[in-house]
Amino acid sequence: MSSMDFFTAMEVSASGLSAERTRMNIAASNLANAQTTQTAAGGPYRRRDVTLASVDVPGTRNTQFAQAVRGVAVSQISQDATPPRLEYDPGHPQANAQGYVAYPNINPVEEMVDMITASRAYEAGVTSMTTATNMAERALGIGR
């Protein structure tokens, strides 16, 4: 297939869908662990953040379009450095000497916003892919 047919648009949308899926997974992980006080690394769960980077689209490498048409990929998943939220609960097994328990630095409202953003971006990706598919189908119908 040549580098600039509809498959390229599909590849780009596919990379976006994968990135948004990862963002959704991270938001779900943050929400699920909003009250987690114990982790393997010690201390409370720390909020995860996704960094997106533009990448080459498979099949366009070394063509004049490689710099123009870019896919997206998750380049790294970082941990939020914001300090944990301290809550006074002396009876808690994870309480420190002063009776404070360190809870994750997660704001559920923020995570909901992230989740909705990911969901809308996913929808947009599906729409652009559907449009590319429809265009390809129209092209196949030429002369019929």
């Binding site: 297939m1 498959f7 599909m10 596919a14 869908l17 994968s18 899926r21 390809a136």
Partner: peptide
């Protein structure tokens, strides 16, 4: 993911058509 499967089958559909 689900979308990867769907995209692959859509591509196959288009290529065969």
């Amino acid at each position: 993911g689900i979308h990867e499967v769907m995209i692959a089958s859509e591509k196959a559909n288009l290529a065969i058509r």
